[in-house]
Structure formats: C-alpha cells, structure tokens
Amino acid sequence: MSDVILDIKNVYKSYGDNDVLKNVSFSVRQNRIVGLLGPNGSGKTTLIKIISGLLSDYSGRAEICGMAPCVETKALVSYLPDRMSLPEWMTVKMAIRLFADFFADFDTERAREMLGTLGVSPDKRIGQLSKGMKEKLQLCLCMSRRAKLYVLDEPIAGVDPAARDVIMSTILGNFGEGSSILLSTHIISDVEQIFDDVILLREGRVELMGDAEELRREHGKSIDQLFRGVFKC
C-alpha cells in the first residue's frame, strides 16, 4: 500500500487575472513533517485551502489518501486556519463539544489536558480570550484529533517567541504515528529543526523542495538561510 497521504499534481488556481498557483506538484508521505515555506502572497494559504476543501474552483489534482477533497477527506484532515473560525459567543467548553460532535476522531480528554497545559480556561467565552489564547485554543482543537493529515496554516504567526516554543512542542507532542503534518510558515528559524521535508513556494510555483537534511547538506546552509537567499529582493 502506498504511504503517500497527500498528492498534489499540476494544481493551478487563479483569482480573476491573478494566477496564485501555477502547476504545483508535490506529495507528502506518512510520518513526515513538511514545511510549506514562502513569503506572503506565494500561494501557501490557497494551497492549504484546496487541501482542506475550502476552495473547489481550481484545476489539477489534489488527493488525500487517494481521494479528491470531499466529506470523507475532511474526516481525515485536521485543519488549523490562519484566522479565528470559531464564533466569539461560544465558550471553550462548547467548542470542545462541537468538535466532539462532528469529528469521530476527536479526543475530548486530550483536548482538556492540552487546554489545561496551555492555560486556556474552559469556561471563558472565545470573545474574552486574547489573540494568543485564541490561537492556542484552535491549535488544541486541531491537534486533539487523531487525523491522518494535520494542515497547519501559519500556526506561529503573531505569537511571541515563548508562545512559539509552547505551540511547537504541542504540535510535536500530539502528532501521532501514521500521520503527517503540512505546516506553512514564513518564520523559519524557530521551526526549521522539526521539518523532515521542505517545499519552497515562490509566486505560485515550487521553487525548491526536498528532504530538509539533504538540502542543508547540499547547500551548506540552514533552511532559513536558504530561504533568505532564494527570496532576497
């Protein structure tokens, strides 16, 4: 059986006259943490939306465990959006119940433990939480699922360096056997050590991709330095 969890082939997407993704192709295998790197506007979020089933108007092929994005793949993909998707009036407890209701792979106990560790009060309304706390809550909900593929869109953008460490350890600590992570970011220095593979996107095209360790060895640079070299203005 193939160990490819995510297969992207010649994906093309435009918003009007603006081509956002131009024939993007790559695949993600089981048990890999893949960094989807690129500056703002390189097409990372668009690609993630396609994988998560939030964009249906594209050409090319995107397959999760051999299926195009659909109801079945949504049950396999745990998606962390780059914005707050939960309503402000909802309490943390209600959000946990909502995820438990809809996702068969959601582990309520795990979510409660994680929220306790991160200091998110279950009785508070989401509207009362700070930006950092909201991000932690969404991350807890996302990582409390036993999903095949975790798709994390900018999980460390907008949080302080101390919170970044907590977020990264939460991701690593809750990523289970047989799963993979696709993590998009443009803040590379803090997270590059966790990547098994990296994909560098530039203006909607794959500029560079491969095994992170091999790329470091081949170019004699860290991924962060490589990124800065590729995207130097």
Binding site: K74, A75, M84
Partner: peptide, 13 residues
C-alpha cells in the same frame, strides 16, 4: 465569512 472556515471543514455535505 470567517466562520465558513469551520463550517466547510466539518465532515458534512
């Protein structure tokens, strides 16, 4: 809107 990011990632038609 933003809540669509939740609604359309739920495993429902």
């Amino acid at each position: 809107g933003s809540e669509g990011y939740l609604m359309f990632t739920l495993p429902v038609k």
